[in-house]
Write a protein that binds this DNA or RNA. Structure first.
Length: 485
RNA sequence: GGUCCCGUAGCAUAGUGGCUAUGCAGAGGUCUGCAAAACCUCGUACGGCGGUUCGAUUCCGCCCGGGACCUCCA
């Protein structure tokens, strides 16, 4: 099926066509590993995951998905410096005299935490082609900086190397392709050292930052000069995308905030150095809010995945909840919303189990269902419409009323759908092990019930309920199921 | 203040110039000794006021309310 995607470059939905038939090369901006990722970060990763799964399952493409790990930037350096309050000696070990080693200890720790988190929300490690660490690609970044410099778009000042944006713009190169940049306010010669900056601070951004005392450093050789320092933030994605996927690749993803300056600068650097565009499609996900407000530490609504797990949420319910909103609209993350998502998800799960249990005579058009659901997903990842189509179908076709062939076809469909949504178990209801004691109580209750001693039967049922199980009577017997929640 | 986005039934999420959506919650019912599960039935909602139109939730204007960015952040 054809995939259509909103491309930030053209500001419209376009039909997706890979550069190379059958193969999609996709790069997603990953985490900066200086802390736990929060649910806003997770949304970005979930959107990328959704996209790559849709490309595989619906598009039928071979997908090469790269997500970088930023393990060097202003914040990782700040938090790994001696005396940093962010240092967790128990997890990271003691700090050393070597800034590079301290950086490595901090970032490796949070990298592990990150990998655990994304696995918990259903992102599979196997789906990645590579997860490169920035510090492993510093030679490639140096090479790119030399290329930019050789092409005349970089200059050295104060031991740092800057991108010469005024020259770039003068020569009619595009800048502001992803984001309307106010070039009127561009100040020729003004320089920005920080990784993050604002769009009215359009200026020469840093490619290589001069070494500062106590910071990790590498030596860049540029035109005979030796420049100790470390890479700027934007350069890493340019270099790693080029090394691992080759330019241009097909799709670049990230949060909306990365359009500027990060992605804009990435595009300019790669064009100035490698002489080609970075990616054909740029896909950006919207932010989320928490209980109708911006998530921020000061409001106390800043959640990491482990915060949510501690509150008793199932990460897969979080996955489903986030996936149930369109990736380009602001999602209001609420605990009530996750609870609703949990029940919706369970309803589908129950339906799937029932497909294996009882049959009827009704036939249904699974092909039409798949066409509708996958059609919506292929249309710019429209999960809300896809799920609506699914639930409409479920309402019209109770599982137990369907004949065997339809049920089999549906199981196959759910298997494919779940390769995208990834929150269900496809198969028969797993047998639950009921403790012997509970089974005895239930058996006792059944006998009491047969003797029409309902008072005793109800008392026994209450006793069973108190231990976390529910007895459901059938005409010819009963089931015992664990009490959920 | 500047730039921008949004306001859809109790909550959340889609969508459309006329066919009134999806989930959760809720109500009634079937079934059951009672329950549970399942199933059936039920909600004309689009912030307010004007305008355009035969007709607006959907287009335009104004107002009200919320949010984003201007500090960290996907």
């Amino acid at each position: 099926m054809e995939i259509h995607l909103y491309n930030t470059l053209s500001r419209q939905i376009e039909r997706f066509e890979p550069i190379e038939a059958g193969r999609v090369r996709m790069y997603s901006c990953g985490p900066t590993v200086y802390n736990h990722v929060h649910i806003g970060n997770l949304r970005a990763f979930l959107c990328a995951d959704l996209l790559q799964r849709v490309l595989r399952v619906i598009g039928g493409y071979h997908v090469q998905w790269v997500m970088n790990i930023t393990d060097i930037d202003d914040k990782t350096i700040r938090d790994s410096q001696p005396g940093s309050p962010a240092w967790n000696a128990e997890a990271m070990g003691p700090q050393t005299d070597d800034p590079q080693e301290n950086l490595r200890r901090l970032t490796r720790y949070y990298e592990q935490v990150f990998l655990r988190d994304i696995e918990a929300i259903g992102i599979r490690r196997d789906d990645f082609f590579a997860m490169p660490r920035a510090t492993d690609y510093i030679p490639a970044m140096m090479e790119l900086i030399r290329l930019i410099w050789q092409n005349g778009y970089a200059y050295v000042a104060g031991g740092s190397v800057y991108f010469d944006l005024s020259r770039w713009i003068e020569q009619q190169h595009p800048y502001g392709v992803l984001f309307t940049v106010d070039l009127e306010r561009f100040i020729a010669g003004a320089r920005i050292d920080a990784d993050q900056y604002e769009r009215d601070e359009v200026s020469d951004f840093v490619l290589w930052k001069a070494r500062k005392e106590g910071e990790p450093w590498w030596v860049l050789e540029l035109g005979g000069q030796l420049l100790p320092g470390r890479p700027g933030w934007h350069i890493e994605c340019s270099a790693m995308g080029h090394e691992l996927l080759g330019l241009p690749f097909d799709i670049h993803t990230g949060g909306v905030d990365l359009r500027f300056p990060h992605h804009e600068d990435e595009i300019a650097q790669s064009a100035a150095g490698y002489g080609c565009i970075t990616a054909r499609y740029w896909v950006h996900n919207e932010f989320l809010e928490v209980e109708g407000e911006k998530m921020s530490k000061s409001l106390g609504n800043f959640y990491t995945l482990s915060d949510l797990i501690e509150r008793g949420l199932d990460p897969l319910d979080v996955r489903y909840a986030i996936l149930s909103a369109h990736y380009q609209s602001v999602y209001n993350f609420t605990f009530e919303g996750v609870a609703a998502a949990r029940r919706a998800r369970r309803r589908v799960q129950e339906y799937i189990y029932q497909l294996f249990e009882h049959s009827g005579r009704q036939a249904c058009d699974v092909e039409a269902l798949e066409h509708a659901v996958f059609g919506h997903l292929a249309d710019n990842l429209h999960t809300p419409k896809a799920l609506a189509a699914l639930f409409t179908f479920l309402g019209e076709h109770p599982a137990a009323t369907l004949e065997k062939n339809s049920q089999r076809a549906l199981v196959d469909f759910f298997e494919r759908l779940n390769r995208i949504i990834g929150v269900w178990q496809i198969g028969e209801r797993p047998p639950v092990v009921i403790p012997e004691r509970i089974r005895q109580l239930a058996e006792e209750r059944w006998r009491a019930r047969l003797q029409r001693d309902f008072a005793r039967a109800d008392a026994l049922r209450q006793q069973i309920a108190a231990e976390g199980y529910i007895v459901r009577d059938r005409t010819d017997g009963y089931d015992i199921v664990p009490h959920e929640e």
